[in-house]
Amino acid sequence: MGDREKELQDLLDSVAAQEGDPATVVVLAQGVTLPHLRNGGVGVELPENLGIPGGRNAGVRWLREHGGVDVVLILDDDGLLPQTDTLRLLREAFTATPRLGIVGFRIADEDGISQRRHVPHLGGAALVSGPVTTFLGGAHAIRMQVIDEVGDFPTQFFYAHEETDFASRALDTGWGIDYRADLVLTHPRTEAARHTVYYRNTGRNRVWLAKRHLPAVLVPVAVYTLVSCAGNGDSKLVGCLYV
């Protein structure tokens, strides 16, 4: 969104410090002007804010047009890669497992603590890696072949649960998703409800998820359950906003 220049430059520095072959770095600005980018980052400015999924789709289109990319890594602009072996570990993971389609990172705050909403498996143990059914928007890598097969992120979602929709389609086509606790993005501790559209979008997009991915006979039950949970304040699944 153009209001985190220092954080963005620090993130670019942490990407440039990675071991091995350098990554192609693209910084997407939605309706704002980008500052000068250090370390060879390419700026792509869109005329308007297309939301999280729309922005990701635009970034993927740019990478396709410029060719030669096998894996897309998406990072929040106020995050930081504290390790220099992150890209090497990612390359090794995708090389070792041909049907691994998506890798989700562990997001940790300034004190090294991961919020429960940032742990995408039922156990809730942030330091336990393994297969999952969704991934975090703030830090994840997707094999380009997966995007080619399952299609774009759902632009109509704008913000919240676009990862869960994409993950469901990837799983349906036989791709695996791993949560890797050893791949860390340091990110300031925040509350999801800080966004004014949080409650509206999470509720609306959960209904859309149910209608898109559940058998028709189960949709009314799922929608009732989701609305009830939201009303009781017990909602656990949230989206991560890219700004």
Rank of each mutant, 00 (worst) to 15 (best):
Q9P: 05
L11N: 03
L12H: 01
D13I: 03
V15A: 01
A16P: 00
A17P: 02
Q18W: 02
E19D: 15
G20M: 07
V26L: 00
L28Y: 06
G31M: 07
N39T: 06
G41Q: 14
V42D: 01
V42K: 00
V44M: 02
E45V: 01
L46V: 01
P47T: 03
P47R: 00
P47V: 02
N49T: 05
G51L: 01
G51V: 03
G55S: 02
R56E: 07
R61E: 15
E65T: 00
G67T: 00
V69T: 10
V72H: 12
V72Q: 15
L73N: 12
L73S: 13
L73R: 10
I74Y: 11
D76N: 13
D78S: 06
T84I: 06
L87V: 05
L89C: 05
A93L: 13
A96W: 04
P98W: 03
L100H: 10
I102H: 12
V103S: 08
V103H: 08
G104N: 09
F105T: 01
I113M: 11
I113P: 06
G123D: 06
G123Y: 05
G123P: 02
G124I: 14
A125V: 15
P131H: 06
P131S: 12
T134E: 13
F135A: 02
L136W: 15
A139W: 06
A139I: 06
H140G: 07
A141R: 03
A141F: 09
I142A: 12
R143H: 07
M144F: 14
Q145F: 11
V146S: 02
I147P: 03
I147A: 08
E149R: 15
P154D: 02
T155R: 15
H161Q: 11
E163I: 03
T164F: 04
D165F: 05
F166Q: 15
S168P: 15
R169L: 15
D178E: 10
D178G: 12
D178I: 11
Y179N: 12
V184K: 01
P188N: 06
A192F: 12
A193E: 10
A193G: 10
R194E: 13
H195Q: 10
H195C: 01
T196F: 04
T196W: 02
V197D: 07
V197C: 05
N205S: 04
L209W: 08
L209R: 03
L209K: 04
K211R: 13
A216F: 01
V217H: 11
V219R: 03
P220S: 08
A222T: 11
A222Y: 13
L226V: 03
V227N: 09
S228Q: 13
L237A: 12
L241E: 04
Y242N: 01
V243S: 03
